[in-house]
């Protein structure tokens, strides 16, 4: 892994067909940072789940809104921060939790994956014009 500090961000249309582009962007950034393959796969999964939640939940009521979300990846002093910005329906952080382990049904796994992979999954106050601002953090 590189010791250089690094920051990159990119905007994507909020739609399910953008999720592949989000993954491609992240893989390219992690490639530049020389992140090892296993960790890279985990980080891409966590990011993809967060982006999926934006498409699936924050824009649930406006699927054709043609709006953008921004993904920002930064590595400073070996702390990886992945920030997401969107202008969808405000998320109530208290309601964001993975389902119970004995509850075998689809859904809720994405949040579980994010929490398993990252050190912290936090909603911060969205600075205008953004409504939601999610930050995933991991010490590398």
């Amino acid at each position: 892994m590189t010791d250089l500090n690094h920051i990159e961000k990119k905007a994507f249309l909020v739609k399910s067909s953008s999720l592949k582009d989000v993954r491609t962007f992240c893989r390219e950034v992690f490639e530049k940072l020389n992140i090892e393959q296993n960790l890279k796969d985990e980080l891409v999964l966590a990011i993809a789940e967060a982006a999926q939640n934006i498409v699936k939940h924050a824009y649930k009521d406006k699927p054709d809104a043609n709006e953008i979300m921004v993904v920002e990846i930064s590595l400073v002093n070996k702390e990886m921060k992945i920030a997401f910005y969107d202008m969808g329906t405000p998320v109530d952080p208290k309601k964001v939790k993975h389902r119970e382990i004995d509850n075998v049904k689809p859904g809720g796994l994405g949040t579980f994956f994010m929490q398993e992979i990252m050190d912290a999954v936090e909603f911060k106050d969205g600075k205008k014009p953004w409504i939601n601002h999610l930050v995933l953090t991991k010490q590398l």
């Binding site: 993954r23 993809a48 689809p106 994956f113």
Partner: peptide, 16 residues
């Protein structure tokens, strides 16, 4: 080459 929670959901639904 890649599967996320959506793919896992399909597997769970298929099993059920």
């Amino acid at each position: 080459q890649y599967m996320d929670s959506s793919g896992i959901s399909v597997i769970i639904e298929s099993n059920q």
